[in-house]
Design a protein around this nucleic acid. Structure first.
Length: 434
DNA sequence: TGAGATGATTCCCT
DNA sequence: AGGGAATCATCTCA
């Protein structure tokens, strides 16, 4: 206290007596050469005031209050406060001043951007996010996946809610505390040299402190979203084998379109619907199947035969039904008698070729065309092998004749496919390429 | 438990 | 953009 009072007295003496104080000084500078007694008197006056200020805490409350009031009303008070504020500004606060103009924190910006992108901050995006959408697309529309998806959305919404609640709390607390401190400082500015600038600076400090807390909140929110997201995206890799039925449907299509196992978008959609999987899963499946078939045709031969037989059986039923139908409805059938000697290597290819000729889509014409082609196939199979256990016959059905010399499949629109229905008996494609 | 099967992903090419 | 090829990760089964 003594030191402080001495310092203040010295400072006050220098500034006030030395006329170096700028702005708001009520005291006119004394004329040159007349500093002597008058100047000393003023110094003494100010010294007294400062002394009174410094010793005010040693006095009783009433006494202090009275003294405070007296000081507040003192004619020198505004000038003195102004000087003290300026001194304060020039000394202690200059250090803080350097930190004032903080550039926007890049980490905070990153966090903000991420939270915005994830749909945690910013406008509500229906609880979803880019991750959810991407994962939803990747994982397909099966019930399990939609459960996972909704689970993800629910968790993200939860995170979002917590984040906003906490953020609101922080903002409220920040505002309350700022107001409190401002009031306090304003109040104290009556008795302490506190300039509005200093109050402003204090508010800035408070805001920075709170924003650092906010940053922690943002960081932990980001972490939570990342964990959620990684868990969800990891789930994409978790694969489940397709159902036996789905695999059969896909295989049937594959082997019945062996010359061109490239289902159109429509066909993919249809297959996806039938198999309860996504179109992209159908694409994946065909991609994998083509490559694996090509890599090891021998291995798939048995499977091909199996599906040939299966297709034939299916066709047999269809034929039976069709024949029954034709007998009752129409005495003549366009194709019933024309293909007795038809040697079809691949019933589905037949269908495909018809499809190509007709330009029909898979959905629209497949059933009808397939039944028709199966009639011929079945006849051929039965005529040639007398049963399905005959390996030779089966092989003739699904010989890997459709791979060209480059190891690629022939184009569906190439003449070889188109002309195959008109090929004569024994037109089983050669397998020279393999 | 290991090998093979299989769905998914990634990179590259056309 | 779609497909081929390589590869990864997981599932299935003996």
């Amino acid at each position: 206290m003594d030191d402080q009072s001495r310092m203040l007295q010295t400072l006050a003496g220098v500034n006030l007596a030395g006329h170096s104080v700028q702005g708001g000084m009520a005291l006119p500078p004394p004329p040159h050469g007349h500093e002597g007694a008058d100047g000393d008197g003023r110094k003494q006056d100010i010294g007294d005031i400062l002394h009174q200020i410094m010793t005010i805490t040693d006095q009783s409350l009433d006494e202090a209050q009275a003294k405070k009031h007296a000081l507040n009303c003192h004619r020198m008070k505004p000038a003195l406060f102004s000087v003290l504020c300026e001194i304060k500004e020039k000394t202690g606060l200059s250090i803080r001043g350097a930190q004032e103009e903080d550039p926007p924190d890049p980490q905070l910006m990153r966090l903000d951007n991420m939270l915005l992108a994830e749909g945690v901050s910013g406008p509500e995006k229906g609880g979803g996010s880019a991750a959810a959408a991407a994962a939803a697309a990747a994982s397909g529309g099966s019930s399990d996946n939609s459960i996972e998806h909704s689970d993800y959305r629910a968790k993200l919404t939860q995170i979002r809610q917590i984040y906003h609640t906490e953020l609101e709390k922080y903002e409220q607390a920040c505002n309350e505390f700022t107001t409190h401190v401002m009031n306090l400082l304003r109040e104290q500015s009556r008795t302490r040299p506190i300039s509005p600038k200093e109050i402003e600076r204090m508010v800035g400090i408070i805001h920075r402190k709170f924003s650092s807390i906010q940053m922690q909140l943002k960081q932990s929110t980001c972490e939570a979203v990342m964990i959620l997201r990684s868990r969800f995206l990891d789930a994409r890799r978790k694969r489940r084998n397709f159902s036996k039925q789905a695999t059969e449907i896909l295989n049937e299509y594959f082997y019945s379109h062996l010359s061109n196992p490239y289902p159109s978008e429509e066909a993919k959609e249809e297959l996806a619907k039938k198999c309860s999987i996504t179109v992209s899963q159908v694409s994946n499946w065909f991609g994998n199947k083509r490559i694996r078939y090509k890599k090891n045709i021998g291995k798939f031969q048995e499977e091909a035969n199996l599906y040939a037989a299966k297709t034939a059986v299916t066709a047999a039923h269809a034929v039976a039904a069709a024949v029954q139908n034709n007998q009752t409805n129409s005495p003549t059938t366009p194709n019933s008698g024309s293909s007795g000697s038809f040697n079809l290597p691949n019933s589905g290819d037949m269908f495909m070729n018809m499809q190509s000729l007709n330009g029909d889509s898979y959905q629209g014409s497949q059933v009808g065309a397939n039944v028709q082609s199966q009639v011929d196939t079945l006849r051929h199979v039965i005529n040639q092998t007398g049963g399905y256990s005959d390996g030779l016959g089966a092989n003739s059905l699904y010989s890997p004749h459709n791979l060209n010399a480059n190891g690629g499949w022939q184009d569906a629109t190439t003449p070889s496919s188109v002309t195959s229905p008109t090929e004569g008996p024994g037109s089983v494609h050669s397998d020279t390429s393999n």
